[in-house]
Design a protein around this nucleic acid. Structure first.
Length: 596
RNA sequence: GGCCCUGUCGUCUAGUGGCCUAGGACGGAGCCCUCUCACGGCUUAAACCCGGGUUCGAAUCCCGGCAGGGUCACCA
């Protein structure tokens, strides 16, 4: 069991003692006196999502659709309960209007007035920042930035077994490295704290009690032994063995406490009391359109564990509501849990946010990219491998999203161009070669000065201690910017230029430094000695001059020199190479070969 | 197995009924440039899962197969 401490800079102005204060959670003030009453009185009229403040723009097709629904249900005006439901449905369908607007490129509904979208990234601190999580964060962040909305970081630390402070730090570090910042969250006070789920347990309990009071949830006192016994009984009846998967046989848990209301002084979980009407339950997804399934397919899932800690499907709903999240963008693996969450929203009379379920990122084996099977799933592993943060962002943003034939984007361009309408539906496979080529592009086209700064730590790691963030390094970066796919590679390439002397490659020597090669080297040396300046621009012509004077091929001149000063047959242009080395070191290496 | 989602070159993708003889990018092959290695430029091979419909016309709409993925916890 771990306990997550506050971040050093997290204001943490909320303690359990003031959890119910007005300033902290406005609605909770009334809640205390009104448990058991109509939720509308506590939470405001159903169907009015506070994030938007007022009903949305009513598009004509939608109105028509609603009218059809009304007719099907036999007209309107049958009492307030039904009107509320009507209202709620109407508002619910307004999301479809938003979606239509968004998909058709009309973003006015967000840029005009107070309707700024609020998005969030809600990782659980149970490991490093995952590449899939990073893309989810990026897309949400990009959308928020583009629309002038708010990006919230919420920590879902309710898994007490696996959550660790180290993981939290790792995730924060990963986001920081990528340059994804947040407007509200750890270390950034916002209007709807706290941003750690473990700090608002009382809120979840309160909502759970409300649901129980309304018969929409129940206390389930079934012990673990009893439930395993139920499974065993089922297996026995079906003639299944211990190892058979009960799900495949259609096992469905059914609690004996489902319809009971007594409150016992015994440990229990709180379960949602699913009340299927034999209808479809579903939602409009920004990416997939209408998504639905039969409501009797859902079971009585757990809201609160025995230790009173909420489970994902519960905490998530309450937080998204409390934080007034307007759009939930998350991975496709959450589609099936969304149906359960919709049921909670409906039970509470809350309008759900707009959902967007992103395609998954798959490993080369075409399985969901996982931390265990795919080392490349770790964002920071790419930092260690010498990938530029922006290159990783550029690569990952295109995995499932497109802007015509464009592939390379600056961050500014992404903020300008990113939209959910062009997020695709199909899972994508992680392609390391492409990442490398994107990285190379930004190494090639990045600011050499910035690159030099970034390169320094990699040089340190490579054992180069005498490099500094100066003109020489910038020259080196320029010389190798078209020759390195990663910063690690670049550091390796640059390393020999910061050493004294060089190890000669035997094959290279045999090929280029035979007697003739050495003779040519002497000629070249004499020309170099005569130089008053030491720059690529004056060194390069020497090869040309010797070639015309002696009639030798340029290769016969440059290669012996190259082998002598670099030890091998490949390097940047000979002028750049010598300039980088400096006159003194160049002469030292030539003399070492000529033996004088 | 139930339910849910998805099928365009090997991979990422463009494509929203005629601009498609299906475009771009990575990777592959080849050529050019060239003092080496790169960069760059050019060329090239490579895909609409299958079968039915709707339509004058389908990669695009509908249905059925098939295939892949996801999900079925007191994880998130």
């Amino acid at each position: 069991m771990h306990h997550l401490p506050d971040l050093a800079d997290h204001p943490a102005r909320l303690h359990h003692g003031d959890l119910f204060s007005r300033s902290a959670l406005p609605r909770l003030g009334h809640l205390e006196h009104r448990v058991g009453h109509d939720p509308a009185a506590i939470f405001g009229p159903p169907g009015l999502h506070r994030a938007h403040g007022r009903p949305r723009h009513h598009g004509r097709p939608l109105r028509q659709r609603r009218n059809v629904e009304r007719e099907q249900r036999g007209g309107m005006g049958q009492g307030s309960a039904q009107r509320d439901e009507e209202k709620q449905r109407a508002n619910f369908h307004d999301h479809a209007g938003t979606i239509a607007a968004l998909r058709s490129g009309r973003k006015r509904c967000y840029t005009r007035g107070a309707m700024k979208p609020r998005l969030r990234f809600a990782p659980s601190p149970t490991g490093y920042l995952h590449i899939g999580g990073a893309r989810t964060a990026l897309w949400n962040w990009l959308f928020a930035r583009r629309m002038g909305g708010t990006f919230v970081l919420r920590i879902e630390d309710t898994d007490q077994e696996r959550s660790t402070p180290e993981s939290l730090q790792a995730i924060l570090d990963g986001l920081k490295w990528l340059g994804i910042d947040w407007d509200e969250g750890p270390g950034k006070d916002g209007p709807f704290p706290p941003y750690f789920q473990m700090k608002k347990l009382a809120r979840y309990h309160q909502v759970a009690d409300l649901l129980i009071a309304q018969g929409k949830a129940y206390r389930d006192y079934t012990t673990e032994e009893e439930s395993t016994q139920m499974r065993r009984d089922f297996a026995a009846k079906q003639g299944l063995g211990e190892k058979d998967d009960l799900r495949k046989a259609g096992f469905k848990y059914s609690s004996p406490w489902r319809d009971k209301t007594e409150k016992l002084d015994k440990p229990h979980v709180v379960r949602f009391r699913m009340q299927p009407k034999g209808e479809k339950i579903g939602f409009e997804d920004l990416i997939h359109g209408r998504l639905e399934k039969p409501d009797d397919d859902l079971d009585d899932f757990v809201l609160l564990r025995t230790d009173r800690i909420p489970l994902y499907n519960f905490g998530c709903v309450i937080d998204d509501y409390d934080m007034q999240i307007s759009h939930v963008g998350r991975g496709q693996e959450h589609i099936n849990s969304t149906y359960s969450q919709i049921a909670v929203y409906q039970a509470l009379g809350w309008t759900p946010p707009v959902f967007a379920h992103f395609p998954l990122i798959m490993g080369s084996n075409n399985e969901k990219l996982s931390k265990r099977k795919h080392p490349e799933a770790d964002v920071m592993a790419h930092k260690r491998a010498g990938i530029l943060p922006h290159a990783l962002l550029n690569f990952v943003v295109r995995l499932g999203w497109s802007h015509g034939d464009d592939e390379l984007f600056t961050l500014e361009k992404l903020i300008e161009l990113f939209d959910l309408a062009h997020v695709g539906k199909t899972n994508g496979v992680w392609n390391p070669e492409k990442l490398l080529s994107v990285n190379q592009h930004w190494i090639k086209n990045g600011d050499p000065k910035e690159l030099a700064c970034r390169l320094l730590p990699y040089l340190q790691d490579a054992g180069v201690t005498n490099a500094a963030d100066d003109d020489r390094l910038i020259t080196a970066v320029k010389a190798f910017s078209t020759r390195a796919k990663t910063l690690v590679e670049m550091a390796q390439s640059i390393k020999p230029y910061y050493a004294h002397g060089v190890t000669l490659d035997a094959a290279a020597v045999a090929k280029h430094l035979d007697a003739a090669g050495k003779d040519m080297l002497k000629v070249t040396k004499a020309k170099l000695l005569a130089l008053t300046e030491w720059q690529a621009a004056v060194i390069d012509p020497i090869v040309e001059v010797i070639a015309t004077e002696t009639g030798a091929k340029k290769g016969a001149i440059a290669q012996p020199l190259r082998v002598a000063v670099t030890g091998g047959t490949t390097s940047p242009g000979i002028g750049d190479t010598l300039a980088l080395l400096g006159r003194e070191e160049t002469m030292h290496r030539i003399d070492a070969v000529l033996g004088s």
